Deep mutational scan, measured.
Amino acid sequence: MEVRTIKVFTTVDNINLHTQVVDMSMTYGQQFGPTYLDGADVTKIKPHNSHEGKTFYVLPNDDTLRVEAFEYYHTTDPSFLGRYMSALNHTKKWKYPQVNGLTSIKWADNNCYLATALLTLQQIELKFNPPALQDAYYRARAGEAANFCALILAYCNKTVGELGDVRETMSYLFQHANLDSCKRVLNVVCKTCGQQQTTLKGVEAVMYMGTLSYEQFKKGVQIPCTCGKQATKYLVQQESPFVMMSAPPAQYELKHGTFTCASEYTGNYQCGHYKHITSKETLYCIDGALLTKSSEYKGPITDVFYKENSYTTTIK
């Protein structure tokens, strides 16, 4: 009895394709271990004539594949690729409408935090270190965002349907971005203890939790000093293409032309909904596939993004 075979390709990165001759009487799992086709788990399936010449994702289970996976995804987590594939199996079914010149995501599976993050990423200057993220990001900007969303979920250790947080998501993504040249110098002034300067680099240099107003941050924000008295913390120097200011959701007025974009969060910790506000020729609110415009805006804002380049204080 002759062994019926077909020729397929296996890959971990969709760049390096490895030619395989597979036995049609055995499952993919018996031949390769966990195997995925377009995100779908085909591990328990036997090869079919229609699979001839198709590319299958496999887990990096030998040295060659491990090197290829690390170079593309910059992670050695053995569960990463499987999590990416199972997320992709959902995100490829989502709709990605162009809204006001940006790629958004039609609401499904509690994905409003991903839509808000995706919209924000198209408006701030950011370059990702893992080629996987950078490639998928370019495709997302062009309207094909399924891979990018699935990668975000995998890097953030999230599953489809789980509630997510924009600030946490951005923080994970910033860790995989090139923020080497970003720098922030802060000064804390206390009447009792004097003053202390701190220099922050990388992710810490672009994120701040405690106030939404970048102007206020430049002037000074009140913080408790270690001595128990009130101290003032203010920005001395900022070198970065953008800054992200966050605070627990509270009524906040966004003035046209003073910011790049913002995240609105309605609801409580267990259950809520994100919308995205962007400042173009007027203010726009993007909620999944829905767009509304207004000249002014007041609502429960939790993150505001500002364009920056270089700032030095005039406070002496």
Rank of each mutant, 00 (worst) to 15 (best):
G228E: 00
K7C: 11
V12C: 09
H74G: 11
L291A: 15
N49K: 12
T199W: 06
E168Q: 15
P249S: 05
N147L: 06
V304D: 08
K158M: 03
G101L: 03
Q237K: 11
E239T: 09
N61L: 12
L88S: 04
A115L: 10
D77C: 13
I315E: 15
I315C: 15
T159L: 11
P130T: 10
A289M: 05
K127N: 12
R4L: 12
L200C: 12
V21G: 10
T27S: 11
G33R: 00
T76P: 14
T10W: 12
I286C: 00
L121W: 04
R4T: 14
A205Y: 06
E281M: 01
L163D: 13
T199Y: 03
V42G: 03
N157P: 02
K92S: 08
V206S: 01
E281S: 04
E144C: 06
T116P: 06
S79L: 11
A150M: 00
R66F: 13
L114N: 00
K307F: 05
Q20S: 12
T312Q: 14
A205T: 02
I124P: 03
T120K: 01
G39A: 14
T292K: 15
S104N: 00
E71P: 05
Y252R: 00
D62F: 03
R4F: 07
Q31S: 11
G202D: 03
R167H: 14
M170D: 02
K229W: 11
A69N: 09
P248Q: 11
V12I: 00
E264R: 02
T35D: 07
M207H: 05
Q122G: 02
A250F: 06
V58G: 01
S50G: 12
E239A: 09
Q196H: 14
Y208I: 08
Y72Q: 10
H48V: 10
Q197Y: 07
A69M: 13
H273A: 06
S310N: 15
M85H: 00
S79G: 14
K255A: 11
D287R: 01
P224M: 12
D287Y: 01
I277R: 02
G143V: 04
S295Y: 08
G33F: 03
Q31I: 10
Q237V: 09
D62I: 09
K183Y: 11
G143Y: 04
G194R: 00
E308F: 05
K95S: 15
V67F: 14
H74W: 03
G39V: 07
F148E: 01
G39M: 08
F305R: 02
N111W: 05
T75I: 04
Q196L: 07
L212H: 08
Q195K: 14
A108V: 12
Y252G: 10
L179R: 03
P34N: 08
Q123V: 07
F56A: 06
Y96M: 00
F9H: 14
C225E: 00
Y297N: 02
G53H: 11
G257N: 01
I124E: 01
P78S: 11
L37C: 11
N14A: 15
L118M: 08
T43P: 05
D109R: 03
I105C: 00
V243Q: 02
M26G: 14
T211L: 11
C227E: 01
L59W: 15
A145E: 02
Q216E: 14
T5K: 15
F217Y: 03
H51R: 07
R141S: 08
P131T: 05
F217R: 03
K183M: 09
G161M: 11
V8Q: 01
Q237W: 07
H90S: 11
Y284E: 11
K158L: 04
S86I: 13
K298L: 11
V8H: 02
F242G: 01
N187A: 12
A140T: 07
H48Q: 14
L283P: 02
N147A: 10
I45W: 14
S25N: 13
E144A: 11
A108E: 11
D23P: 14
T198F: 15
T211P: 06
D38K: 09
E204H: 07
F148D: 00
N100P: 06
V243A: 05
L290G: 09
V221I: 14
K158W: 03
Q123N: 03
M245L: 12
T282P: 03
V188W: 00
Q237E: 11
V304A: 01
E215T: 10
D77M: 08
Y269H: 15
T64L: 09
T232E: 05
V203L: 10
I315K: 15
Q20Y: 09
Y36L: 00
T43M: 10
S295A: 13
Q270N: 15
N309K: 11
V304L: 07
A140M: 12
F305G: 04
G143Q: 11
K93C: 14
C182S: 05
M207T: 13
A132R: 07
A140I: 12
Y284W: 13
L151Y: 05
F9V: 04
Q251S: 09
T211G: 04
T232C: 09
Q237T: 12
S181H: 15
H48A: 14
K183S: 09
L121V: 09
F70M: 15
A262M: 05
C190P: 03
W107Q: 03
R83G: 00
F174W: 01
D165I: 06
M26D: 09
K92Q: 05
V42W: 13
L235R: 01
Q237S: 13
F217C: 10
Y311L: 05
S104F: 15
L254A: 02
Y269E: 15
L121A: 05
Y284T: 09
A142D: 13
F128C: 07
G33Q: 10
V304K: 02
A262K: 03
L119T: 00
F148N: 01
E162S: 08
K219R: 13
P224D: 11
D62A: 06
E296C: 14
L179N: 01
L254C: 00
Y155Q: 08
V189A: 11
A205M: 00
H51S: 04
T64G: 11
F148Y: 01
E264S: 07
T120M: 09
C156Q: 08
M170S: 03
T312E: 10
V189G: 06
A262P: 01
L118F: 11
L114H: 03
R66D: 07
E168T: 15
C112T: 05
R4H: 14
C156K: 00
Q175S: 08
S86C: 07
V185K: 03
T43D: 11
G164H: 08
C149G: 07
A250Q: 15
P34I: 00
T192C: 05
D303V: 07
